[in-house]
Design a protein around this nucleic acid. Sequence first.
DNA 1: GTGAAAGCGCTAACAG
DNA 2: CTGTTAGCGCTTTCAC
Lengths: 331, 331
Amino acid sequence: MSISSVADWAGVSVATVSRVLNGHANVRPETRERVMAAVESSGYRVNELARNLRTAESRLLLTMVPNVGNPFYAEVVRGIDSVARQHGYFMLLCDTGADPGRERSYFDLLRRRRADGAICLDPATIQQALAEESGALPWVACCEFDQAVGVPYVGIDNYRAAGDAVRHLLARGRRRIALINSGDGYLYAQQRQQGYLDALTEAGLTPDPRWLVNLDSLDYAAGAQAAAALASAGSIDDTPDAIFAVSDTLAIGVINGLRGAGRRVPDDVAVIGFDDIAVAAQIDPPLTTVSQPMQELGRTAARLLLQRLANPSATVPGVLLPHRLVIRSSA
Amino acid sequence: MSISSVADWAGVSVATVSRVLNGHANVRPETRERVMAAVESSGYRVNELARNLRTAESRLLLTMVPNVGNPFYAEVVRGIDSVARQHGYFMLLCDTGADPGRERSYFDLLRRRRADGAICLDPATIQQALAEESGALPWVACCEFDQAVGVPYVGIDNYRAAGDAVRHLLARGRRRIALINSGDGYLYAQQRQQGYLDALTEAGLTPDPRWLVNLDSLDYAAGAQAAAALASAGSIDDTPDAIFAVSDTLAIGVINGLRGAGRRVPDDVAVIGFDDIAVAAQIDPPLTTVSQPMQELGRTAARLLLQRLANPSATVPGVLLPHRLVIRSSA
DNA sequence: GTGAAAGCGCTAACAG
DNA sequence: CTGTTAGCGCTTTCAC
């Protein structure tokens, strides 16, 4: 049941069927109706494999994400999906586990014409490699980005956001502020760390290296463990009186770990997170955090990519979306 | 840069290039090497659009999910992705919002040959409609399924699982057990509700209709609201002393709502959830819940679908995976 | 306003 | 072991 059977059925040529299917002008209303009737009654559907070969586009957007299981990424993905759909594109979702090998093989989908463009949320270290080999392949960076890579991006000002978090803690009278970070590969992690460091020194404080922990993980459990370690490293006033975690998942784990160590939040130690995932408002105590516009981050990334696809030569800007400090009870 | 340029470059025919690209036998090692060299140096990549048209398969699996933002679904999706990848397939992810219209238009991707098969996690009501119009289209149901639909499925025994939850509450001496459910469209919700009802009556209790609430949502906030309403409907011993929520997200909201209403968990009211999402172990008190093998659910669904694709005539079984009561502190 | 025909880039008979 | 060739089903000039 191909386009030619429909053509036969309607007593027209395949060209005409194609025209009405694609809503072209220059088809007599009468003919159009005849074709439509044939389409209806035959239950015909275009074979988009064929159409795509012919038009040389897949109408698929590739999304490469370290872990959809992380609520932050899941929301971003939803944002991408929503605007892709709106524009007649679908989303190929690839969970890379931030693994360079997997990442590269996924990215190859672009070269194989299985996707028209890609959105990458993976570590900047990987993105740099991608950019080198990618030639002019259409892709954009989302959330994690390196301005120097020269690829369109959307994200937030991680440096300032981290500074805002730390300054809030400072304003609340905290002085022994720890940072629980997610590790090196991510530029956002480095930027937040720098924001933390600078905010501290600007306040006349000397960052204590014992209180700067890098985890290489965003898991709840990792946060809990790290917090327990921090708390058990000394007496209550020789250990941090505040912890800034670079993600809400970590922060929630931190609160749990602190509880296990017998520390009260925020009385003994204040905790501030990052992202503002849905569950952050539900826990006890409700989490103070730096909110990112997760869905909008995804939507913008998709828009940038679509823009790039529509006009490959135009220079697409990098865009920074606003973050916002959401003060609840944990800090 | 097509296969024919590579052929020219290597001084062979396109057929030969195709053979080495697809790892066919019957190619002299020497020729093979010559071709490989040409491929390397030209940076050639197959156009899978063309290959797919020719072989009449897209090697894409469509996943239709009500909401990837829900941690439960996100984990299932990861499971699907992992086995799809393992078998050379990629995943088209569609967030349907459980909307029948969107769902149907996504499902049409199968007919348009953009996906080889589909995995549906949407409400059974939608699945029934799908099954009627779907003819012999290859798809499987995952988590949410109706045995009567005659489509391969994977899930758990929701009726028994709910019963197990309620019996646990009963064993802990609770008698005024409320159910917070997610609403009608989902068969799993009905099954869990029936399991709840039957477990109660088997214990000689009469279910109190005031304590059976249907939410039509899995949001944290919805759970919180429902719990607050339940708690404020009367004095402490005229309101539930236990709440069974059909999802951890709801349960976490419930705990929050209860706290807001001045009720202690589990002292005043025990709370039990469903799914065992990662955050369930982190909150205060740690959530007692019915664990589902989320990733394995997704992996199995993908395997069933792949099986169906490999052998369309074989009858693929429905499979029920084990659930497990995870007792923590909330109940 | 409509049709004929040429491909898109690939795979798979079929020959040799 | 390798080459020739016929499509896969569609869109799109180019004629009429």
